[in-house]
Nucleic acid binder design. Sequence first.
DNA 1: TAACCTACCAAACACTTGTTAGGGAAGGTT
DNA 2: AACCTTCCCTAACAAGTGTTTGGTAGGTTA
Lengths: 204, 204
Amino acid sequence: MPTNKKKTQVTASPERRRELLGTAAEVFAAQGYNATTVRKIADAAGMLAGSLYYHFDSKESMLDEILSAFLTELWEGYDTVLAAGLGPRETIEALVTESFREIDRHRAAVAIYQKESRHLSAQPRFRYLSDSQQKFEKAWLGTLERGVAARVFRADLDIRLTYRFVRDTVWVAASWYRPGGQHSPEEIARQYLSMVLDGIAVRG
Amino acid sequence: MPTNKKKTQVTASPERRRELLGTAAEVFAAQGYNATTVRKIADAAGMLAGSLYYHFDSKESMLDEILSAFLTELWEGYDTVLAAGLGPRETIEALVTESFREIDRHRAAVAIYQKESRHLSAQPRFRYLSDSQQKFEKAWLGTLERGVAARVFRADLDIRLTYRFVRDTVWVAASWYRPGGQHSPEEIARQYLSMVLDGIAVRG
DNA sequence: TAACCTACCAAACACTTGTTAGGGAAGGTT
DNA sequence: AACCTTCCCTAACAAGTGTTTGGTAGGTTA
């Protein structure tokens, strides 16, 4: 018999885990990770604080699971886009669209990631956050550089500034986006791309 | 003799208060408000936790003072711009430039504001955060609408989306901006404006 | 010198925090 | 009927939290 299983995972059902992680993510996103007590999570889930430890072995592991699940799915989509061999502009368009779809699916996780990733990435357990961020930068910055070289993106801008600009414009949307609103993720992506690529000024 | 003074403000010197608020703001910005203990602040200030209460009457009042001081100064600058009677495009340019100057001066406060304002604004004590946000929206959204009417901004974009776009792209900069870097606030503002107004794509 | 003020320390307080241990009810399996 | 599994509760724990109280070294004033 295998003995190295986590004790809390021996009998807990995966569906219930996902359900609880969902409510935990909502509370984390709304109140912030540190301001969220396990009792608040338990309240939102309709149970008592101690009962959470039947499914998870710590508050931190809930956060871990939420973030890593999100990043795993995110990179699935990104890698598909990056492997498609598109041109720079089309790659940016696809990445932005994919990002908004991800915000649509993992709104809470994205919000948490935005608020907490900076000071979490120092912890060894959340090392994968920095790794992801580096991969992220490589993908976006590389695409922008290709675009400048191919003369589809302007060459007179500081490219790192442009990178941060594009990156931020996409992800901060998670702070106000609500699924089921009047705009679909694809529509929001279209408008964002239109602004980033062509600007908001009327062309003279 | 006046008796309605706050007890902790009777003898504390304002200079020392500002000094301590500065280090507190740094710690809040780096670790997050809730994750920051008063002992950490005291450590950073080279004193013991209890000694902070000679200058301030609570941890929350430190946060309050940091945020309200920032917003007061911010609106001083904004109101000057808005009262200048500039055209829509020039108003946007001036607001963005002013914002980056504010980020330069109150980097920590801006970072705190960004992370915490959402869930703080529910508290009655921080009501002024919502007030400020409303004023903010009125100023920016109004200017954008004027610009669309005057045909200097595109009419084919969702204006609320544009507002969020412009607003967010400016303020998230506080999360990566470091004073004394290679770009001055004005230079960063110039490049941001160039991207927002004209886009990053090469004009065909 | 004596009284006073400023700015801090030392030590504790009541409370909240994440977490654990043991138990038990419901329902399925043998 | 006995047993097992799943899922939660009750009740407590130790550590950490913001805050208070009383004291005190050193400078300033009377």
